[in-house]
Write a protein that binds this DNA or RNA. Structure first.
Lengths: 324, 324
DNA sequence: GGCGCGAGTGTTAGCGCTAACATCGCCATT
DNA sequence: AATGGCGATGTTAGCGCTAACACTCGCGCC
């Protein structure tokens, strides 16, 4: 910066002012500085700025170590929103174990992030974060907790109820559920929605199958589907896909013999065979909301609880009336 | 740090030494320092370290703004590998236009990244990067260029040839290709492989359909499949999925009436209906290789060209002998 | 017993930037 | 013509750390 100042014949402080868009700089001076900068190919040192201002403008993001559509989309939307607001995300992906979460969080804290987004679909991750009692603005994503106003997420209960209501409306009464691992908030909430909706309709649930979110688990679940079930509500689209495959291998037709509903509405769901009826979640929106909330908190605003976002049911061809 | 030093009754430099794992520190002193650190909940300021050492230990990653399985997996593997080596990735996602690439790159450079990973499947991204003539260690991913030794990628030509050889071996002669956008290196290379293999077998190619990688494009492509084609080689799995859907809607059975091959081997491909024959790419490997190469360069080593990684054909149920 | 040596620690000087204050003209005002 | 004010710029100090060098012991050696 000193070099630039000399070339432009000004003080380094003036260079700093130009770079920071201060007013009260003679246009002519500004031009000379700008010219010197581009002539020298100067880039200002971010570390020194951070040190001098004690502002990093960094938002830490703790993301699960998966390449699933949901978290990935949310992180990308978040990045875009943060950048527009003059912040940049520092993303670390982490397994769910406590030590890994601590280490990732430690890294982010060392880097001086001003706020934290924790994508914590898994209970262990949330517990680990809670244990740390961090004192910076923090928002948790996808960790729906029944009755807790904290965090930002899509209303999983509502989504499950949407799916179940659709099946009930079609006339299904014997509906089975293929859940994700129940340590995942979303899996637990969807299961709860499944049971609550059935209970309300006065119907007993069929045995639960707990998978691991993968299509392979869905495939294996097919063997566990009870012979008199006429519909299956799956915890996500991947498992629904695998389930349909497994059911097909068993000689069952979807939806003629058995209906299947998924959850997430991944981009491919539209072209599964049959095209999948599923619950659509606006992942990008939660990423944007996270940034909004955090910036509000950084600016010192009060933290108002964010209402859960409503999912939308997308009816396609994998559901139909039950066989007679 | 000064506070810690006082509590421990040493100089701040000794604290620094403990933190940096220096030898020649009396165990007793070290313990006192460590105790003071945890008592005060002290975290060292990364920006100050960077400023003092002029080492950021950051690796910039320029990734495409998509949530596809390939780039996502590569980035995750890269992150893991970098972190193990004591580096951390700074990921920016960017659209393919020149201005956006410049701005993302500018950000990374400002942050003082010591090396750059550019995931540049798109020709415009690579061009923009080249234009900048950066002088730091840099590696490009997924930008296969015929005959160029630079960059790390999976051998797309080989993959396409694998797929085509499989179809030819089954007895197919009228094979069509559904390509991705041809500004993508991978799309171009796969197309080239398609044509080269046919040429070698003395067979004329059928009209090309160029899609946009999405399953929707695959679905639309179905309408453009020539009536006498007995097999289709798709540029990726998503398009293959859509294509199968479209063909099914046209009353064609896969593979009885027409065989379909995909590319990528996404985790769900195994459970598509029918399970998809496809070319498997080890995305994680290229992420790891990128880190390996860059660390070598940072350490001052010579840059040896990295041979392309061989993909593997996975034969499933979407391909079979042509109808008589 | 003085000397050299090295282990263990302290002191000092920046890294490159910004904040705060200081300065210098020049204009409008009285 | 002296004065206040403000726009435009310069000067100084310090953000929190590490590198380089300085120092102080205690030990083994001749």
């Amino acid at each position: 910066m000193q070099d630039v100042a000399e070339v432009a014949g000004v003080s380094h402080q003036t260079v700093s002012r130009v770079l920071n868009g201060f007013e009260n700089i003679r246009p002519e001076t500004r031009d000379r500085v700008l010219a010197a900068i581009s002539q020298l190919g100067y880039r200002r040192n971010a570390a020194a700025r951070v040190l001098a201002t004690s502002r990093t403008h960094a938002i830490g993001v703790l993301a699960p170590a998966v390449s699933d559509y949901g978290p990935t989309s949310a992180v990308q939307a978040l990045e875009r929103a943060a950048r527009i607001a003059g912040y940049h995300p520092l993303v670390t992906t982490t397994p769910t174990d406590r030590a890994a979460v601590f280490s990732s969080l430690g890294f982010l804290l060392d880097q001086g992030v001003e706020a934290l987004v924790v994508i914590a679909p898994h209970i262990r991750v949330l517990d680990a974060v809670r244990e740390l009692e961090l004192s910076l603005p923090i928002v948790t994503l996808q960790s729906t907790e029944l009755g807790s106003g904290t965090g930002i997420s899509i209303d999983q209960l509502e989504g499950a109820q949407l799916a179940m209501a659709h099946l009930l409306e079609l006339g299904h009464r014997r509906i089975q559920h293929v859940a994700g691992p129940l340590e995942f908030f979303e899996a637990a909430a969807r299961r709860h929605g499944y049971e609550a909706t059935l209970a309300e309709a006065g119907i007993a649930p069929l045995p639960l199958y707990v998978g691991d979110w993968t299509s392979g688990a869905g495939y294996r679940a097919a063997a566990a589907i009870s012979p008199d079930a006429t519909a299956v509500f799956c915890g996500n689209d991947q498992m629904a896909l695998g389930l349909i495959h497994g059911l097909t291998d068993r000689g069952l037709r979807v939806p003629e013999d058995i209906s299947v509903v998924g959850f997430d509405n991944v981009p491919e769901a539209e072209h599964y065979l049959p095209p999948l009826t599923t619950v659509s979640q606006d992942f990008a929106r939660i990423g944007e909301l996270a940034v909004e909330v955090l910036l509000g908190q950084i600016a010192g605003g009060e933290r108002a609880p964010v209402p859960a976002i409503d999912p939308v049911l997308v009816v396609r061809a994998s559901t139909g009336p039950p066989r007679a």
